[in-house]
Design a binder for these strands. Structure first.
Length: 311
DNA sequence: AGTAGCACCTGATTGC
DNA sequence: TGCAATCAGGTGCTAC
């Protein structure tokens, strides 16, 4: 569920809480939340005990806590993952929530802290892995944390708020292939961080039909789409992200407020804020997709591609 | 190489 | 009331 603005909200919350902390204890409450680790929960715990967290980093929706320059505690929130912080020792913290998959006891400046990883749908996961330099690392970087990424993140493209991604670069990455642009926006190997909500919102803002073939986008449309992605994400970030329910909250358990500003996502049947035409919803590429049939027209010449496929 | 389809889960909501 | 079907913010693997 969480997309870039939500994951960044979590990252910021973690950064202030865990930076400089020593990992004193690791309680894995559900083994399957530890993935990509041959030795499972035991290895996970073994590599973390005594390690010091030096920051909190993110690329797209992938999050990691570097343990120095060599390795990191990596996390992906999947559809429902959360981190929750308690500035008290574990024995004074609330009983773990039924969805709590792992509990960490940290020590920082002589204080014991408790960090919980919750995940209702269990698509999220944790692991410890090496940091590797990536070919597109920013020279000089934005601090040591960004000069390298975890192995599991190396195949992910730079994200939509990364200063190294220019509108021209995004246009080049997106205007390839014949799939609809909505599906291409969700492809994390191109420009990462965009999920189902912000894809629909950005396409609405840029007035582009979600099924327009990626290679039929003009360079100008692609640049406008990138501007739209950034605008939507920056506004969402300023409001702490989008919360529909308790499945997305920040590290303090608080909701984000961007849901009230959504113009397309989840608004099927309601009037478009620009023209009043009811927003439509249709499943495209197995994802629920929302758009204004008036503002986001499918050009006739491309509409033919939707016709019956001969086989 | 690029793309489509499905698998991985739990829980809330909807419909019969 | 009960039960089944449907839906949900994501990723990655397999097979074409």
């Amino acid at each position: 569920m969480p997309e870039l603005p939500e994951v960044e909200t979590v990252r910021r919350g973690l950064e202030g809480f865990v930076t400089g902390a020593l990992i004193r204890d690791v309680e894995v409450r559900r083994d399957s939340c530890v993935r990509l680790t041959p030795g499972g929960a035991d290895e996970f715990r073994g590599r973390l005990l005594g390690a010091r967290i030096v920051g909190a980093a993110r690329r797209g929706k992938f999050l990691w806590l570097p343990l120095g320059a060599e390795d990191a505690l990596s996390a992906h929130l999947g559809m429902s993952g959360q981190f929750r912080v308690h500035a008290v020792p574990a024995d004074a913290a609330p009983e773990p929530h039924p969805h709590c998959r792992a509990r960490f006891t940290l020590e920082r400046e002589g204080q014991e802290l408790t960090l919980d990883f919750l995940d209702q749908r269990t698509f999220g996961y944790l692991h410890v892995e090496d940091l590797v330099p990536t070919p597109d690392s920013l020279p000089g970087g934005q601090g040591a944390d960004l000069a390298a990424v975890p192995v599991s993140v190396a195949h992910i493209g730079r994200d939509a708020l990364d200063p190294a991604v220019t509108p021209e670069l995004a246009a080049r990455l997106w205007r390839r292939g014949t799939r609809g642009i909505k599906q291409v926006l969700l492809d994390q190997t191109r420009v990462s961080g965009i999920g189902n909500i912000y894809a629909d919102e950005a396409l609405w803002l840029a007035r582009i039909h979600p099924e327009r073939p990626a290679d039929a986008l003009t360079a100008r449309q692609a640049r406008e789409l990138f501007d739209a992605v950034r605008a939507v994400m920056e506004r969402a970030l300023a409001q702490g992200g989008t919360s529909f329910d308790a499945l997305y909250v920040n590290v303090n358990g608080e909701s984000g407020y961007f849901a009230r500003d959504l113009e397309a996502y989840g608004r099927a049947g309601q009037p478009c804020a620009r023209c009043g035409t009811p927003i439509v919803r249709e499943v495209i590429g197995q994802r629920s997709t929302h758009w204004c049939p008036q503002c986001q027209r499918r050009p006739r010449r491309y509409a033919q591609r939707r016709g019956p496929v001969s086989r």
